[in-house]
Simulated scan of single mutants.
Amino acid sequence: MTVAVACAAACAALTAVPAQAHGPQGAEGEQRVPHWAVKDTGAPDVRFRGLAALSRDTAWAAGTLGTVLRTTDGGRTWRPAAGDPPAYRSGVAWLPHSRTAAIAVGPTGTDLTTDGGRTWRTVDTGSYDTVDCTPDRGCWAAGEKGRVARLEQ
C-alpha cells in the first residue's frame, strides 16, 4: 500500500465517524470537520520528532536539543521532563499499563524511564527513529537501513 493510499484511507475513516464524535455542529447544522488545535510548547527552537499520548490530557513530546516535554492539562502548559535523556531522541512512547514509564529512541540509543521522566537509563545503543507500544505490552521501534525491532525483556 502506498503512503498516499494509506493517508486517503485514514482520512476517509476519520471523516466517516458519526457526527456526534466530531463535537458540536456548526452553523445551520453543518458537521464540523476534525482539525488540529495547535498548542504552544514554549520551545520555538526545538523540532519535535516524537509524540506519545497517554490520554486526551497527558502527552510527551521528544525533539532536538535533547528536549522532552510533558503536558498533563491538554497542552495548556508544557514542562520539561525532570531529567532529559542523555542525547537527542526522535521517538517516545508510553509503556503499556503505566502512567510513569516511557521509552525514548534516537540515533544513539534507547532510554527508559520508570519515574515519569525524572531519570533515564540507556537500555540499548542501536539507532532507531520511531517507537510505538501496544496495550498487550508489545513495543516496536524502526530506523535506518530497514531496521525494525521488537523490545524484549
Rank of each mutant, 00 (worst) to 15 (best):
1 M>A: 15
2 T>N: 11
2 T>V: 02
2 T>E: 08
4 A>Q: 15
10 A>D: 14
13 A>M: 09
14 L>P: 08
14 L>N: 12
32 R>Q: 15
38 V>K: 10
38 V>T: 08
39 K>V: 00
41 T>N: 05
44 P>H: 00
45 D>H: 15
45 D>K: 15
49 R>K: 07
51 L>Y: 04
56 R>E: 14
57 D>Q: 15
58 T>D: 11
63 G>Q: 06
64 T>C: 05
64 T>A: 06
65 L>M: 14
67 T>P: 09
74 G>A: 02
75 G>Y: 03
76 R>M: 05
78 W>I: 01
78 W>K: 01
79 R>C: 06
79 R>E: 14
81 A>P: 08
81 A>H: 07
85 P>L: 01
86 P>F: 04
86 P>C: 00
88 Y>E: 15
88 Y>W: 13
90 S>C: 04
95 L>W: 07
96 P>D: 09
97 H>Y: 10
99 R>S: 14
101 A>L: 05
112 L>D: 06
113 T>R: 03
113 T>W: 03
120 W>N: 00
123 V>A: 03
127 S>L: 01
128 Y>H: 09
128 Y>L: 10
133 C>R: 00
138 G>R: 15
138 G>T: 15
142 A>C: 03
143 G>S: 02
144 E>A: 12
146 G>W: 07
147 R>N: 04
148 V>R: 02
